[in-house]
Design a protein around this nucleic acid. Structure first.
Lengths: 242, 242
DNA sequence: AAATGATTATTGGCATACCAATAAAATTAA
DNA sequence: TTAATTTTATTGGTATGCCAATAATCATTT
C-alpha cells in the first residue's frame, strides 16, 4: 500500500461530505475542523483540499472558506490502470459501433483501400503477435479517423490507450495468442469493411457491434475457464443492448 | 485572476522539466531545489508536486525523491480549445445517445429521482445562467454515471470538459442566454427522462439523439445568422445518420 | 577484494506558528 | 434608525523546523 496520507484524508473528507447534506455551492467545514476531526495537522487537510480542488470537487477561497463545486458522485475515475477489460470492451462496443456508422457515410476510397491493406497484414502476419495486434489497433483507429471528426478519433485513441496500458488485459491477451480466435476476428473485420464499402451506416454499426460482442464472449470464456484472478473485473458488463 | 500560488509553481515546474532533458523514469530535482529556484518555501513546492502527482505526471517516493512518470507531451489543453463546437456536438450526439441507451437498462430509481430533481433546478433557476448550465452538465453526466461503466462516464466527462474549456463555445453560449432555447432543451431532457423511466433503451437513445440534434440546429442558426467568426468550426458535421 | 553491517547524508512527511485576505461584529456619524 | 466606518474574528496562505524513510558512504569482517 504505502499510500500518501493526504489521499486517505481526501477520501475521508469525501465520505464526510457524502454523509452530511452539503449541497453544491454550500460552504464546507474549515480545514481546521477536519484537522481536529481526523487528528492530523491542518497541513495534511490542506493537501487533501488541494487534491479535491484539482478534481474540481471543491473551490477554495482565501479568507472565506471552501465550497462544494460539483456533486461528488461525479468523481470521474480516470484511474486508467484499474479499469476492467470487460468494462472497457463494453464502452468500446457502444462507442466504436457508432463510430463505424459515422464512418460509413464519409469514408474515402483511399481509406477503404488502406483498411483492405491492413486486413491483409492481419491475415498474413499472424506469426508475430505484436504486428497483428498493431494492425488490429490501426484498423479500428483508421475507421475513427475516417469520420473526419477529431473528437471521435481522440476518444477512440483514448480507449485503445486504456487497453494497451492495462496489465490485466495483457494477461488475457497473452492467453489468446496461441488460439485461433484471430481468424474469427479477421472475419469480423472483413464484414465491417464490406459494410463500409456499401456506405451502409447501420450495417457497419451492426458489424462492429457484433465484432466486439465476439471479442467479449471470447475473453469471457478464457477468463471464466481458467483464470480465478479476474474476479472484480467482471462486475461491469450489464447491458447487452441492440 | 487571483490563482492559487501552487498552481503557478506547478506550471513553472512543468516548464522547467520541459526545458531540461529529463526522461520518463528519471529523478527530478528535489523539492528544496525548486523552492530555492523559485524563491518560495518548500511547502508550496510540495503542494505543486501534489498537483503534478494527481495529474499522474510524477511519482513521489518518501526518502528517495520524485520521478517523472509520464511524458508531459499530453498537453490536452491546446487540442481541446481547437475543437469546433459542432465537431464536438457531433461526437456527443453519437456517444451520449449510446450512453443513454445503456443507462436505460440499468439506471436505479434513486438516480431517476436525482435526474428529476435536476430538471426542477433547470426549470426553476433559469435566472442564473451558470446554475442552469451546471444542472445541464450534471443531467448528462449523471446519465453516464448510471451506466455503471466508468469508461463511459470518463468519456462523457471528457467531452464536457472540452466544451467548458472552449472559448468558442462560451461565445456561442453567451448568445443563447437571453433566448428561450432553454425551454426547448428542458423539454428534450424531460423526454429523455421519460424513456429512461420506461427502461426503453432505443427510446432513450432516440430522445438523446434528438436533443443534441436540436442543440446543433440552434447553435447553427445562431452562428449562421450573425457570427462571421465561426468559420472553420463548421467543417466537421457531415453525418446525420439515423 | 568482496560482502556485510554501521554510519551519515539526503529527501520527502508532517506539525506548528505566524501572515494576509475576507467576513462578521461593533462602533460611530448622519 | 440607518449608513458608513472601524474593529475583531475567522479562514485560508506561507514559512520554518523537526521527524522518518531511503539512499549513499564508510568501516568492519571474511
Amino acid at each position: 500500500m504505502a499510500e500518501r496520507l493526504y489521499r486517505e484524508i481526501g477520501e475521508s473528507i469525501k465520505q464526510e461530505i457524502a454523509k452530511s447534506n452539503i449541497k453544491v455551492g454550500d460552504k464546507l467545514p474549515t480545514e481546521r475542523v477536519y484537522a481536529e476531526l481526523f487528528g492530523v495537522s491542518r497541513t495534511l487537510v490542506r493537501e487533501a483540499f488541494i487534491m479535491l480542488e484539482i478534481e474540481e470537487l471543491i473551490e477554495v477561497r482565501k479568507g472565506s472558506g471552501s465550497y462544494l463545486k460539483n456533486h461528488l458522485s461525479l468523481k470521474a475515475n480516470s484511474k486508467v490502470s484499474d479499469v476492467g477489460p470487460f468494462e472497457l470492451l463494453q464502452a468500446r462496443q457502444e462507442i466504436e459501433s457508432s463510430i463505424a456508422a459515422c464512418a460509413a457515410l464519409v469514408i474515402t476510397k483511399q481509406e477503404l483501400q488502406t483498411l483492405q491493406d491492413l486486413l491483409e497484414i492481419e491475415s498474413a502476419e499472424l506469426e508475430t503477435v505484436e504486428k497483428a495486434n498493431n494492425a488490429d489497433r490501426d484498423f479500428h483507429l483508421l475507421i475513427a479517423q475516417s469520420t473526419q471528426n477529431t473528437v471521435l478519433l481522440d476518444t477512440a485513441t483514448r480507449l485503445w490507450d486504456m487497453r494497451d496500458g492495462n496489465p490485466m488485459w495483457k494477461k488475457l491477451h497473452a492467453r489468446i495468442q496461441d488460439t485461433s480466435y484471430h481468424d474469427q476476428w479477421l472475419e469480423d473485420h472483413k464484414k465491417v469493411l464490406v459494410q463500409l464499402r456499401k456506405r451502409n451506416a447501420e450495417g457497419a454499426r451492426q458489424a462492429m457491434w457484433q465484432h466486439l460482442e465476439n471479442v467479449k464472449q471470447t475473453l469471457f470464456k478464457l477468463s471464466d475457464t481458467d483464470a480465478p484472478d479476474f474476479d472484480g473485473y467482471l462486475f461491469a458488463q450489464p447491458h447487452t443492448s441492440h
